[in-house]
Design a protein around this nucleic acid. Structure first.
Lengths: 209, 209
DNA sequence: TAGATTGTTAATCGATTAACAATC
DNA sequence: TAGATTGTTAATCGATTAACAATC
């Protein structure tokens, strides 16, 4: 019997993980749901509810053992085995993602970049080699790449997705603001940067009324 | 009497807007909640509910007039008056954001970039001038900047936020994965790129069990 | 008129918060 | 033992979906 875990809870896991990591670095041994919540602006009840949906990690009357809880959450997020990423598109965003350091501690490693522009093929960004888009199939298979990151212009996003699917990728992280069509079997997460900014604009406008 | 609009609804507004914009470009005059929903993977009921929370924009038996609805949503999002952005930090992410074209049609304009590294000061990225971080106060006031975008390393994010608040910014769009402290009066939206990627990793891990 | 589609109320579903027994 | 804090059940809150009257 597998309990259903809400998306909201899953979204909070990496935040717990990072907070625990910081606490561990500072030598903290024990943390309460209260303190964990305070650092992230969640209620302690929320924290306990989230954590217990995966098991009982705490000690009543004491709290949670930082290292233990961190490892548990790491396991839930699948951190023991590194996921290999490929970035498609070597524009400004692709380059920024290739240089982003925070993915590492969450179990991700960027191992290839693809681009259609032959002039950039062969070069490296942050020590990651740029391959010809046409070679995707063999590179993905050879390097056992799990996840494709779409950082190409909107008009080419579906083509990029199709090529990634064809090459046998398991998940797609899409930065193009379009609804992609992919098979059910491929996990798709959309990262639409315009939503957050629009929200900000909306709120400022409301205030000014 | 002001009706409360849920965050979920606000998040969908820019998506409606973009879809309507595309429909308009293709010369479509009328669109139904059904079709609008189909293009974004929402139910027609959801679309109608969202739209009616701001007023009655449709014609019963007909649908919505594309241009009219687009303009309405644009007004709700505050698009008539352009918001001026400043990016703090000219790392890879800052540079990518300075070059991002999609903000324009949502009513945003990047007018300044700030950095502490004096070697980059005076240069331009995508025709946007880079200013010394220390000059923030006068530049923000002079250029009447509304929103600050934090694209600096985690350790400097709070400093950047403090400086922006001090300079009189109204909203902050934060890309650093830290919880910032800002006054109640300043709107804060966090854009944590690690959440989406973690979700993808989590789902793949679950599948493999 | 018949068919289509909105706007709105009611029903359902799901997530958060509150309360409290269990127990360290 | 008294105090603290978890894990869990119940209550509340909010968002989505269903149903349908209004009307073009």
């Amino acid at each position: 019997m597998k309990k259903y875990i809400s998306q909201a809870t899953v979204d909070r896991l990496p935040l717990y993980f990072r907070t625990l990591q910081l606490a561990e670095e500072e030598g903290q041994m024990i943390i309460s749901s209260e303190e964990l919540g305070r650092q992230l602006d969640f209620t302690p009840e929320q924290v306990r509810k989230d954590l217990t949906s995966f098991g009982q990690f705490g000690r009543k009357g004491i709290g949670y053992i930082v290292a233990e809880l961190k490892n548990h959450i790491g396991k839930i997020l699948g951190l023991e085995s590194k996921r290999r990423l490929a970035i498609v598109g070597v524009g400004h965003l692709g380059a920024a993602l290739a240089n982003y350091e925070n993915f590492d501690s969450l179990g991700f490693e960027t191992v290839a970049i693809f681009d259609v522009d032959e002039r950039s093929v062969g070069y490296e960004i942050n020590n990651i080699k740029i391959y010809d888009f046409k070679k995707m199939d063999s590179v993905v298979k050879h390097k056992r790449i799990d996840i494709g990151v779409i950082a190409v212009p909107e008009v080419h996003a579906q083509d990029a997705a199709d090529a990634l699917v064809e090459a046998g990728i398991k998940g797609i992280w899409n930065f193009a603001p379009v609804k992609l069509s992919v098979p059910e079997s491929v996990e798709l997460v959309n990262e639409d940067l315009t939503i957050g900014l629009s929200t900000l604009g909306y709120r400022l406008t409301q205030k000014e009324l």
